[in-house]
């Protein structure tokens, strides 16, 4: 998917997480600090990936009941800063699937490459989703 990162959305995100540093919500403060526009904060890209009409469709297609889905781990690797106004393309790939505890826990690892419109690979996201299969849990 391809998305434009909107300035107003970043200011809203800053408000929602209680960010008081004005460079994340005030264009003048950002520019006075040497940034071309509002910086995209460290975890913002995660939600951008969900900004599609049916963000959990792919996981439901795998037969997963959303009620039993947990977010186990999240990792970000950064190669360049992103700013409001940047257009980015996100390319997710399932890179690993494994199970633990006799199949009662299933892990899905998804890596997402983030590329800016100028072709620069700016970041990689890696999330580990955990699917509980309560029927397979071994009772003590």
């Amino acid at each position: 998917m391809t998305a434009v990162i909107e300035r107003g959305r970043l200011a809203y995100f800053a408000k929602a997480i209680g960010e008081s540093d004005p460079i994340y919500s005030d264009i003048e403060a950002a520019q006075a600090d040497g940034h071309p526009d509002l910086p995209v904060p460290p975890t913002f890209l995660f939600g951008l990936k969900l900004d599609v009409p049916d963000p959990f469709g792919w996981i439901e297609e795998l037969g997963v009941d959303m009620h039993f889905l947990l977010h186990g781990k999240q990792a970000f690797t950064y190669r360049s800063m992103l700013y409001a106004g940047d257009t980015v393309t996100l390319t997710p790939t399932i890179i690993d699937v494994y199970e633990k505890k006799g199949g009662s826990l299933e892990f899905i690892v998804c890596a997402t490459e983030v590329t800016r419109a100028d072709g620069v690979a700016v970041a990689t996201l890696e999330e580990t989703l955990v699917v509980r299969h309560p029927g397979l849990e071994i009772k003590p």
């Binding site: 959305r9 809203y12 408000k15 929602a16 997480i17 939600g47 963000p55 959303m66």
Partner: peptide, 13 residues
């Protein structure tokens, strides 16, 4: 509610 809207994660749970 604010974080759901701002982040884009609309998971209703």
């Amino acid at each position: 509610a604010l974080f759901a809207g701002a982040s884009g994660d609309h998971n209703p749970i």
